[in-house]
């Protein structure tokens, strides 16, 4: 149904309205107008947050903690390489189309609750970037950028990681939307590096159902979407081997993400966006709480 909505903005609005907004709260504590709680002082806490009145009453050092609503910085990292232009059936979105809709919806939701949303688009290099901001006009800027994207070029996640290392110096939420079909074997290690830079990393792994089920039978000339390679094979002859390789790879991606505290969300492009976003947002709310 989503694919039938013509424009990205329309798809984003339709999705956003279906999602319960404001499920998450900022995990950051500090300068805020709203007092949250007291916490017993521990070495390392800033002395300026010590509540001296409470010390006078209880003869113990307590530190005041505050809630703030709008200080999350989120980078939406969208893969626009050639492989993202694939769709296995005419009634489905391409992987890039699905990623743009997902990214736009997330931007909409973030800005709506005063979080800052930024965008980085990459293929073999970063081709477009918007620094995270919380103004409502940011959503329009992001959607405009996404709307003009076409798939092309090789996938090089390293380019996006280098860009973020340079531009995202503060702790940020990094949401990568990609099919991860990068020939660079360091791909998963690069994602783990982002996490080590204290960013909260989420990987939306987008895959077309045809990539997961391999519904080919007849002799077919498979052509690469990112370079000039091609291979001729009869679908039914190679299906079993393909599915085994694909299954092993998916398991490997999930395992490495888990080991490196990277949230991994596998997304089939025939899956409703609600089904993807709602569990994701719910998990984030639980973790924030």
């Amino acid at each position: 149904m989503l694919a039938r909505l013509a424009g990205l903005r329309l798809r984003v609005r339709a999705t956003a309205e279906g999602v319960i907004s404001g499920l998450h709260r900022s995990p950051h504590h500090g300068q805020s107008v709203e007092f949250s709680e007291h916490k017993e002082y521990a070495p390392g806490d800033e002395l300026r947050h010590v509540d001296w009145k409470a010390f006078g009453k209880f003869d113990k050092y307590y530190v005041k903690r505050f809630e703030q609503e709008t200080n999350l910085r989120a980078w939406l990292v969208v893969d626009a390489s050639g492989s993202m232009g694939y769709r296995g059936a005419d009634d489905r979105l391409t992987k890039l189309g699905y990623a743009c809709t997902l990214a736009g919806t997330l931007a909409h939701l973030l800005v709506r609750q005063q979080d800052a949303a930024g965008l980085a688009v990459f293929s073999d290099k970063v081709t477009a970037a918007l620094t995270p901001r919380a103004e409502p006009s940011q959503v329009n800027a992001i959607l405009e950028t996404l709307d003009g994207l076409t798939a092309g070029g090789e996938t090089r996640v390293a380019a996006a990681v280098s860009f973020l290392a340079e531009r995202a110096r503060r702790r940020s939420a990094v949401m990568v939307l990609s099919d991860l079909l990068d020939r660079d074997e360091r791909l998963l290690r690069l994602l783990a590096d982002l996490r080590r830079r204290r960013h909260e990393v989420t990987v939306f792994h987008l895959l077309d159902p045809a990539e997961l089920d391999f519904p080919f039978d007849d002799p077919t000339l498979f052509q690469s979407m990112e370079d000039s390679r091609s291979v001729e094979a009869r679908g039914r002859d190679v299906r079993k081997g393909y599915l085994e390789l694909m299954g092993r790879w998916l398991e490997e991606v999930r395992r490495v993400c888990g080991e490196n505290d990277v949230e991994y969300v596998r997304v089939r492009t025939d899956q409703p966006l609600d089904d993807v976003l709602l569990p994701f947002l719910a998990r984030r709310e639980r973790s924030a709480a």
Binding site: M84, D179, T220, S224, E226, V231, V238
Partner: peptide
């Protein structure tokens, strides 16, 4: 001999590897 139908496909690395592995048997 039937001409194979050309199909652009993203996960071509897996197809190539599967074909290499099954080629001898096929």
């Amino acid at each position: 001999r039937r001409r194979p139908k050309p199909v652009p496909f993203p996960a071509i690395d897996f197809v190539m590897q599967a074909r290499r592995e099954t080629e001898r048997r096929l």
